[in-house]
Nucleic acid binder design. Sequence first.
DNA 1: GCAGAGGTACTCGGATACGCGCTGTCCGAGTAAATTGGG
DNA 2: CCCAATTTACTCGGACAGCGCGTATCCGAGTACCTCTGC
Lengths: 156, 156
Amino acid sequence: MGEGVEWTAHSCILLAWMEDDAVPAAKLASYYKLPSAYLNKQLQSLVRAGILTSVPGPKGGFRLARPSDQITLWDIVAAIEGEKDAFHCTEIRAQAAGSRTQFSSPCSIAIAMHEAELAWRRALAQQTLASFVRAAERSVPDAAERARRWLDTAET
Amino acid sequence: MGEGVEWTAHSCILLAWMEDDAVPAAKLASYYKLPSAYLNKQLQSLVRAGILTSVPGPKGGFRLARPSDQITLWDIVAAIEGEKDAFHCTEIRAQAAGSRTQFSSPCSIAIAMHEAELAWRRALAQQTLASFVRAAERSVPDAAERARRWLDTAET
DNA sequence: GCAGAGGTACTCGGATACGCGCTGTCCGAGTAAATTGGG
DNA sequence: CCCAATTTACTCGGACAGCGCGTATCCGAGTACCTCTGC
């Protein structure tokens, strides 16, 4: 799995704390010590997925497109990694020698793989960004305040 | 996900039908119209994982190392793709500016990702090779007999 | 003092190189079977 | 005819290239703010 998922997920936590103040990608990257331009590219994927909105120009940046309790971890993963299944059935049994090319029921292995991925997606879809924000605040109570101050006073 | 998972899974179904007769990788590859040498490489991974046993020389090949009801889809996936999690937490929050490097609780995002992967693994671990064999026989009742005949009479 | 036009600085966004891992292939070590020669 | 040593042919197993995708970077289009000038 790509690094972009972790980067953008944590970035979304910060954006949740910033409410409606747009935060540029450079600030987020500086906060987490990440390559700025690449993080920007990943955030664009979230914009295309409708999770974030972007505003250009001075005082511009990214912000959440909807409340944090309406953004799931699956939304973020799907935006970065794509929505299609990791396992792709090529129906090699249809290529099998001595078999009819016609099959009544679909490949049972593909079904099992798909079911497993559905379980994975459901588990991710149950986790909302709001729950991560609460967990972070429980770990460090003044995290939101600290983050806001740092982003306001940071130079680069 | 790599192609090897699909290839080796279907190969295991055939090996289950062949009981204790060793089948060379070339025969399996010819049956499914797959590159022979590469399939051999993938099957070696299953041997290292203890799912198959290999015998060299004439009349050699691969066979199942244990009954088909004791081989799960997760065993095969783990053998090919590796057992470690797809998502690797790099703890970028520890790199976050203005934060204590010490954290009491682990990263909540990493926990959610790990839980989702556990759900995926459990779903795969519940599917045994024996169930796939039964499904294939239900789809094509004489599939086992046909496969045995073809493998016996095939030239390459 | 105020309004408006121009300049400026800052942002996102997509187009452009680089590196690693999966894909694919090849040849050698090892082994069991087949063969051949002798008893 | 039976046995054993040798040859043979076939297998796995790991070492060797090729390619695609994720990683990383850069520069251009666009916009809001700031400044400066004229009224």
